[in-house]
Amino acid sequence: MIPAAFEYEKAGSVEEAVSLLQRFGEDAKILAGGHSLIPLMRLRLAQPSALVDINGVKELNYVRLEGGKLRIGAMTRHVELQNNDLVRQNVPMLAEIADEVGDNQVRNMGTIGGVLAHADSAGDYPTLALMLEAELVTNKSRYQAKDFFKDVFTTAMAADEVLCEVVFAVANGPHKYIKFRRRLFDWAIVGAGAQKLNGGWRIGLTNVGPMPVRATAVEQALASGATPEQAAEHASDGLNPSGDLRASPDYKKHLARVLTKRAIQQAQGA
């Protein structure tokens, strides 16, 4: 399958990428790892008029610990996250999620910024960003994760905005992310994450709606002394997932409850 024709330029810096986006207009797209965009282009579900390739933008590839925050450049690849000591020590769930994205070949190319900007409802990083209240930094502004994801494949970013950095507060307590899928390299049918942070629990859900979900009802139940089993019953509160080839809406809600329970229990080491 051959994508529709497009113009192509490599950017050497964020500044150059922005000016290329402005020159090409709103049908242009940033090309990061390309492992969501290129498949969509092959199927012609996406037909951007131009691609601005930021793979050569070295300034977007880093992991730093500064002022108690883990700062990650948007072009940092999954393989670099899964093996990075700073990530493993400070936000271990991020390294564990990176280790489970796609397969070796995908992890060698795909980037954290690409996943977040693409905002696929089955993406795992958006859930983690939401539950850990990460900050997403672009060339224009800073977004809280809850304000960044607007709909499926839709973020708050403008057409000439480039995601540059993701900032996580340190979260190195008990945690578990469970990705339920049929084959190792698949996207999550449903995913659930639990992270102990500042004495409370953060619970996030993947692929149960157009955007990532923070299961606040579960968090509150746990704070009020409910067992993981009792609290997880609230994981499907307010959810209205759409069905797909792999799971009906009811099955996804069931999975949300079961996986939330398991994630909390496994995080606790129970």
Binding site: Y8, G34, H35, I38, P39, R42, V79, D103, N104, Q105, V106, N108, M109, F185
Partner: peptide
């Protein structure tokens, strides 16, 4: 569809799917 890996090649020291790169 970027799933089967039959197109895997090495670029530098990394395995990649050559169907998912221009």
């Amino acid at each position: 569809t970027s799933q089967c890996g039959a197109c895997t090649v090495l670029i530098g020291d990394k395995a990649v799917k050559s169907c998912t790169m221009f």
